Simulated scan of single mutants.
Amino acid sequence: MCGRYGFGNPARMGTLPLGVELPPLEARFNVAPSQAVPIVVQGRSGSRRAGLARWGLVPSWADDPSIGNRLANARGDTVATKPSFRGAFKARRALLPADRFYEWQVLEGQKVKQPWCIQLPDDAPFCFGGLWEQWVPHAGSDGASDAVSLVTCCLITTEPNATMTPIHDRMPVIVAPADYAAWLDPGTPAPVAQALIRPWEGPMHAFPVSTYVNAPRNEGPACSAPLS
């Protein structure tokens, strides 16, 4: 799974060919599930919009939004069939801009996993492939509810590429800019969208970082500073 990521240079994310302006963002180096993240979505009218969503998908049918705590990631091999994700995969795919993500490597004989930061060359921005949902609280027997509606999202993961294989057995899907339109379009046939769930084929660089990133409360460039 992918449990953390970041956008250390938000201004550069504006260079992505998203067709819409992202909301104002502060630099983040340790984004964790349950936090607000930028997403780009497209409706059936063809218009795109950008905004913030809570990381951790809450299906529209859920009674309790706490289910999102367990749905930060969706496996690409079952996303089209699992009840929690299949509706969103069919009609509510999203792009999540970023410029780094983290994974934790199991080390033989070690109790503590080694965190790694993974980026594209020149720390270029990119977009994860994800899903989004609009959750509306269900009214109680008295017709009222104290809960508020939520826009939530998740990342999709797939098999690792050559860079990721020594580190972890999964990696987040990174959508190539040439595929943004097909990924976002609700009218794209499911088999075509499924074919875009694949390991990143371009170059990447990965480097170990301090366990400082392990704590969600920690933030700043130290989270992705290479170990000396």
Rank of each mutant, 00 (worst) to 15 (best):
Q110G: 00
A74E: 02
D77T: 08
G6D: 11
G220Q: 09
C223N: 07
G51I: 04
D122V: 00
M164V: 12
G187A: 14
A181C: 00
C154M: 04
K90T: 12
T152R: 11
E21L: 13
P189I: 10
Q105E: 09
P203Q: 09
F101G: 03
L25G: 10
V112M: 03
G140K: 10
G3M: 11
A27N: 09
Q35V: 03
M13P: 04
L131M: 05
R86P: 05
N73V: 14
A11P: 02
A193E: 06
A225H: 08
P137F: 08
P208L: 10
N30I: 08
A222Y: 02
G143I: 12
T163M: 05
P125M: 01
E201F: 01
P121L: 02
R75C: 01
A27E: 08
D63T: 11
T157G: 03
M204I: 07
S224G: 09
I67F: 02
F7C: 04
A11L: 14
T78E: 08
V175L: 13
M171F: 08
S141L: 14
G6S: 12
A162N: 04
I39R: 07
P24W: 11
A124F: 00
G46E: 10
Q119Y: 00
A222G: 12
S141T: 14
A193V: 07
V173H: 09
Y180M: 12
A11Y: 06
G140E: 07
N9E: 15
W200D: 12
G202Y: 11
I67C: 13
A124L: 05
I174A: 04
A222H: 10
P33Y: 06
D179V: 07
R48W: 04
P189K: 11
V213S: 12
A88Q: 05
A80Y: 00
G129T: 10
G140A: 07
A62P: 04
A32M: 04
D142W: 06
R44Q: 12
P97A: 02
Q42L: 04
R44A: 15
I197N: 06
I67R: 03
L107K: 11
